[in-house]
């Protein structure tokens, strides 16, 4: 560490110095990088697969939409049973005593059944007596009755028929559900649900938590994502739509989701598929810290000395002494 506090003059004392134009180098680099970027942009453009709206979802796959909406009422979707920060229905992830998902509480409260189904229907029931009466029947019934209707309806849905964008189930005791679902589907197909889910009483909107959670509960968006190799089990975070490169720099983070113990239900040392998100964030934090601390970690900091790659980079310095050629004489460092 003797050079720690040394000035550059002391550090380089006796070293042969050659002319080197840093500013010219930067200017050339700017031109080269800009030219390369321009050529790539002109030749390949950039990925832009259009967004999915709740309207396109309800139009393209009405059955998936209605099934998801019924599941929201039954409380069986991902968001309904999520836990923090949206609700208290789920445990959330933890590893031993480490459970940050629990620590921070329900900060973005979302009641899926109400937010995604009941409230939008209530707003739409204005001047729609049929829907208003169905909604009243639903709300006046006890949870037990609602559960029976939902159970019967959900069992009938897989055999439902879709005609002209409408979903029809065989006759049965579903209470007001078919009317509610037909209306919600109609509102969604018309594009009104897209607006209702982001409004939240505000005029200006920038927060899409509700519609994204709702779409995430369905099978339509994740089906499209699966085709594009974007899901978690497909290294999705480093992939991109079309034939474009993605966030390749996330390869290590994404890799952990594909290997033991994060793919296993039993896992190892309490780390498993159930708390993979937490485990991998902790692991990546540790690895990134280790990368930052490489200068101080014995072994890791010595690898460059053991590998001869530096001898290629500094081959002028390591070149054998040649007395006749003064320009590459051995340095007196």
């Amino acid at each position: 560490m003797k050079s720690m506090g040394a000035t550059q003059e002391e550090y380089y004392r006796g070293v042969r110095m050659i002319r080197y134009d840093l500013v010219k180098e930067l200017a050339i680099a700017l031109g080269a990088a800009g030219l390369l970027g321009l050529v790539l942009a002109a030749a390949f453009s950039s990925p832009d697969v259009p967004q999915v709206t709740i309207a396109t979802w309800a139009q393209s796959d009405p059955l998936d939409f209605v099934t998801t909406a019924a599941d929201e009422l039954a409380g069986s979707t991902t968001s309904a049973g999520y836990g923090n920060p949206y609700n208290t229905a789920g445990e959330g992830q933890s590893w031993g005593p480490i459970g940050p998902q629990k620590w921070f509480g329900t900060r973005i409260p979302i009641d899926s059944a109400n937010a995604f189904v009941i409230q939008p229907l209530q707003r739409a029931s204005f001047s729609n007596a049929n829907l208003a009466s169905a909604l009243k029947t639903w709300q006046d019934s006890d949870a037990d009755q609602q559960g029976k209707w939902l159970d019967a309806y959900s069992k009938a849905l897989p055999d439902a028929t879709v005609t002209d964008g409408n979903v029809a189930v065989v006759a049965g005791d579903y209470g007001p559900l078919p009317v509610m679902m037909a209306n919600l589907l109609g509102i969604a197909q018309a594009g009104a649900l897209d607006g209702l889910l982001v409004s939240g009483g505000h005029f200006y909107q920038t927060d899409y938590t509700q519609p994204l959670l709702f779409m995430g509960d369905g099978g339509y968006l994740s089906g499209l994502a699966d085709q594009a190799h974007l899901t978690g089990s497909q290294w999705g975070m480093m992939n991109e739509t079309g034939s474009y490169p993605g966030q390749t720099w996330l390869w290590l983070y994404t890799m952990w989701y594909q290997v033991f113990p994060f793919t296993s239900d039993d896992g190892f040392l309490g780390l498993n598929a159930g708390n993979a998100d937490l485990g991998i964030i902790i692991l990546m934090t540790l690895l990134t810290t280790a990368l930052a601390l490489v200068p101080f970690i014995p072994g890791l900091r010595d690898v460059p000395r053991w590998l001869p790659i530096h001898r290629l980079i500094w081959r002028r310095y390591y070149a054998p002494r040649r007395s006749s050629a003064s320009r590459i004489e051995a340095p007196q460092l």
Binding site: F44, S45, P47, V49, Q227, A228, H229, Q234, W235, M238, N239, E240, T241, G242, S243, Y244, P245, G246, T248, W251, Q258, V259
Partner: peptide
Amino acid sequence: MDTPTTYFHWGFILISTPNLLVIA
């Protein structure tokens, strides 16, 4: 470029052609 690309699958590794090209 908007057409889906080929993915290579070796064991747990699943990588797209463009990502592979970038790394290579």
